[in-house]
Simulated assay, not measured.
Amino acid sequence: MRIVIAEDSVLLRAGLTRILIDAGEDIVATVGDAEELITVVARHQPDLAVVDVRMPPTNTDDGIRAALQIRERWPQVAILVLSQYVEERYATDLLARDTSSVGYLLKDRIADVSEFLGAVRRVGEGGTALDPEVVAQLLARSRRRDPLERLSPRETEVLALMAEGRTNPAIARQLVVSDKAVEKHVGNIFLKLDLPPATDDHRRVLAVLRWLEG
C-alpha cells in the first residue's frame, strides 16, 4: 500500500515508518502537522493515511479534523487514527457515515507490531479496525443514552419543548392539551430518565441535559 504518516512525535513517526517499510509497505510521505497532511494527501492520493489525533498547529484536535476532511474530500483514502486515549466524540464522528476503510487504535496497541500491521492491512483493504477500549467506551456511551429510548413520542415532544425553556402551561398550549396532561408527561419523563425526587426546577434542568447529551 501507498501510505502517508502524520505524527508530530519524531521518534514515533520514524518508528512507524520503519515498521511499515520492513513489512513491505510504500511510505510516500511523512509529516508532522495537520496542514501538511492535507497537502500530501492531495498530492499523493495514498491508499491509507495513518493520523495522530492531536497535532500542530494547535496540538488539540487538528489531526482528527484533518482526517475527517480527508474522508469528505477523498473517500477512497483509508484512515487509521492513532490516539493516546479514547476520545469518544471524535471516534463517533469518524464512524458516523461509513465504517469501511477506517480504524481507531490507541497508541499502546502499536507495541504489538503484528497486531498493528494487521490493523493497517485490514483498514487498507476496506475493513474496520477498532481498539477494544474504543469499542467498550462507545458501547458505554450508547448505554448511557438508553433512557431516552424509553420515552414515548409524546414524552419526547414534551422534553424537546422543555429544552426550549418552556413552562408546563406553555407546553400545554403548544400541544393543545391540558396542564394536568403535561404534568403527567413531565412526571413520566423524570421517572424514565431515572431522576430522583428533587425540586422540579432541578429535575427539569437534569432532564434537558439528558436530552442534549442524546
Results as ranks from 00 to 15, higher is better:
Ala49Val: 05
Ser152Val: 02
Gly63Arg: 03
Ile79His: 04
Ala160Met: 15
Ala163Asp: 03
Gln76Asp: 11
Thr58Lys: 03
Gly15Gln: 05
Val40Cys: 10
Ala91Met: 00
Val53Tyr: 03
Val177Phe: 13
Ile38Glu: 10
Pro56Lys: 14
Ile79Leu: 11
Ser114Gln: 14
Ile189Ser: 06
Lys107Thr: 01
Ser178Ala: 03
Asp194Lys: 12
Ala170Arg: 08
Gln84Val: 12
Val50Trp: 04
Ser152Asn: 01
Val28Tyr: 14
Val102Met: 13
Ala181Asp: 01
Ser142Phe: 02
Val176Ser: 14
Ala14Met: 15
Ala96Ser: 05
Thr58Tyr: 15
Pro57Ala: 03
Ile19Arg: 12
Ala170Asn: 09
Gly24Phe: 13
Ala136Val: 05
Gly127Val: 01
Gly187Val: 07
Pro169Asp: 15
His202Tyr: 09
Ala172Cys: 04
Val182Glu: 02
Gly214Glu: 12
Pro169Gln: 12
Thr199Pro: 00
Ala136Ser: 15
Arg150Ile: 04
Leu212Thr: 13
Arg71Glu: 10
Arg144Gly: 02
Leu148His: 08
Arg54Cys: 13
Asp194Cys: 10
Val158His: 02
Leu12His: 11
Ile3Lys: 00
Phe190Pro: 11
Asp62Asn: 08
Glu88Gln: 15
Pro46His: 04
Gly187Glu: 08
Leu105Phe: 10
Asp26Glu: 14
Arg122Cys: 06
Ala34Ser: 10
Ala172Trp: 06
Ala160Asp: 12
Tyr104Ala: 07
Ala119Gln: 00
Val176Asp: 14
Ser83Ala: 14
Leu11Met: 15
Leu148Val: 05
Glu164Lys: 15
Leu206Ser: 07
Thr92Met: 08
Ala163Gly: 06
Gly165Tyr: 13
Arg143Thr: 09
Phe116Pro: 03
Arg166Asp: 07
Ala66Pro: 01
Arg145Met: 13
Arg13Cys: 02
Ala207Lys: 13
Gln137Glu: 11
Ile70Val: 01
Arg173Met: 12
Ile5Phe: 02
